[in-house]
Computed example of a mutant assay.
Amino acid sequence: MAGCCDHDAGLRAGAPSGLGKLPRLTQSSYREAVSQTISGLAAPEGLTDQDMAELIGNSAASIGNARNKKGDMSAVSMLSIGKAFGPEALNTIMALIGAKAVPADAICCGNVSHIPVAIAQALPLLITLLGDNVCCDDDVRKLHTSGAIDTIINAASMLERRRNEVRLKDG
Rank of each mutant, 00 (worst) to 15 (best):
Pro87Ala: 14
Ile127Met: 04
Ile149Phe: 06
Thr48Val: 11
Tyr30Pro: 07
Ser39Pro: 05
Ala106Glu: 03
Ala61Asp: 06
Gly131Pro: 12
His114Met: 04
Gly110Gln: 05
Asn91Gln: 06
Ala106Cys: 14
Pro23Gly: 09
His7Lys: 10
Ala122Phe: 04
Asn65Arg: 13
Ser77Glu: 04
Gly46Trp: 14
Arg161Lys: 09
Leu125Met: 15
Ala53Ile: 07
Glu165Val: 15
Cys108Tyr: 03
Cys135Ser: 10
Leu22His: 12
Leu96Tyr: 00
Pro103Gln: 06
Leu143Gln: 00
Met94Asn: 09
Arg167Met: 10
Ser59Val: 15
Ser62Arg: 05
Glu160Thr: 00
Asp8Gly: 08
Gly64Gln: 12
Ala155Thr: 00
Asp137Met: 12
Thr92Leu: 05
Asp72Leu: 13
Leu130Asn: 04
Ala156Leu: 12
Cys109Tyr: 00
Ala155Gly: 02
Val166Ser: 09
Ala9Leu: 13
Ala66Pro: 02
Ala33His: 01
Leu96Val: 06
Ile81His: 03
Ser74Lys: 11
Thr26Asn: 00
Gly131Asp: 09
Gly82Gln: 06
Cys5Asn: 11
Gly57Asp: 03
Arg67His: 01
Leu19Glu: 03
Thr151His: 10
Lys169Val: 11
Thr92Asp: 08
Ile97Tyr: 02
Cys108His: 00
Leu41Trp: 03
Ser74Val: 14
Pro103Ser: 11
Gly57Arg: 15
Cys135Tyr: 02
Lys83Phe: 04
Gln121Ile: 06
Leu41Gln: 08
Glu165Ala: 13
Ser62Val: 07
Cys4Met: 10
Ala43Pro: 02
Ala106Gln: 10
Met73Asn: 00
Lys142Ala: 11
Ala9Pro: 02
Ile56Asn: 01
Gly98Lys: 04
Ile93His: 01
Val117Glu: 09
Leu125Gln: 05
Ala155Arg: 03
Gly71Asn: 10
Thr145Met: 15
Glu165Asp: 14
Ser80Gly: 15
Ile107His: 01
Cys108Ser: 13
Ser39Ile: 03
Ile149Thr: 04
Ala120His: 06
His114Tyr: 03
Lys142Thr: 08
Arg141Lys: 15
Glu88Tyr: 05
Asp105Asn: 08
Gly57Ser: 14
Pro124Ile: 13
Ser113Phe: 06
Ser157Met: 14
Ala122Thr: 01
Asp8Asn: 07
Arg141Gly: 05
Glu54Lys: 11
Leu90Lys: 07
Cys136Met: 13
Thr145Val: 13
Leu168Pro: 03
Ile63Met: 15
Ala43Ile: 05
Glu45Ile: 11
Glu165Trp: 14
Lys83Tyr: 01
Ser77Lys: 08
Thr37Met: 13
Gly171Ser: 05
Val166Glu: 07
Leu55Tyr: 14
Gln27Thr: 13
Arg167His: 07
